[in-house]
Simulated assay, not measured.
Amino acid sequence: MTQHVRPLHGPSTDFTATDIRDTARRLLDMEPLPPIVQAGHPVLRQHAAPFDGQIDDEELHALIERMREVMHAAPGVGLAAPQLGLPLQIAVLEDQYQIEPASAAARNREPLEFLAVLNPSYTAVGPESASFYEGCLSVSGYQAVVSRPSSVQLECLTPDGTPFEGVYSGWQARIVQHETDHLMGTLYLDRAELRSLSSNAEHAARWSGPGIEDARAALGFLRS
């Protein structure tokens, strides 16, 4: 059984292939690492251009490595090209962080090996959903509860152009959805329970437990 996921698309980018190539080359030349674009920048609200060879193979692999470096330095578990100001459908994902066992169990969070995806899309698998606090490197300082399908099928191209399909569950599915959404011009706040919105400091002090029950009761969201 598949579940419909509400599409939230921004307007298509007006970047030409030349604009994309030039921006990618600037990112590769930038020292130190390029900054992560923050909410309010138009690139985060645009439907990124599908990758179709705007940069050559050498530049593509260098860009993916640069994105991985920025993701690690942040630190984060995913990064999409628009978060570096480049409206191109490329994202990198990796989750190797050790977290408290109760939280890992509640969130069904298992390590995710490094994955670079081009032109990704996802479809929910089954009717189950899960609600947890989620943050974003482009919405610095805040977290909010997002309800997402518990399992999704990812379809994309690998960097060498090979079609890829895979089913992801738990926290891995959340990462897949979050980063793919970025390429459509969607931020996690578009899908969030806004009454749950918390600063990182308040989240750490009050709502960092395995589940969201205490936050739901105190902040008044996700009521049936």
Rank of each mutant, 00 (worst) to 15 (best):
Y142S: 11
Q143G: 10
Q143F: 14
Q143T: 13
A144D: 06
A144R: 08
A144P: 05
A144S: 13
V145F: 06
V145Q: 09
V145R: 06
V145E: 07
V145N: 07
V146S: 02
V146C: 04
V146I: 11
S147M: 13
S147K: 14
S147T: 15
S147G: 12
S147R: 15
R148S: 08
R148G: 12
R148A: 09
R148M: 13
P149K: 07
P149Y: 08
S150D: 13
S150V: 10
S151C: 14
V152T: 13
Q153W: 04
Q153T: 13
Q153G: 02
Q153K: 12
L154P: 08
L154K: 08
L154H: 07
L154S: 13
L154I: 11
E155I: 01
E155H: 02
C156Q: 02
C156D: 01
C156L: 03
L157M: 10
L157K: 00
L157S: 02
L157Y: 08
T158N: 03
T158A: 03
T158P: 00
T158R: 05
T162L: 00
T162E: 00
P163F: 04
P163C: 09
F164C: 03
F164N: 00
F164S: 01
F164T: 01
E165R: 14
E165C: 09
G166R: 07
G166S: 11
V167T: 15
V167P: 02
Y168E: 02
Y168W: 13
S169L: 06
S169M: 09
S169A: 15
S169V: 09
S169R: 13
G170W: 03
A173Y: 09
A173N: 10
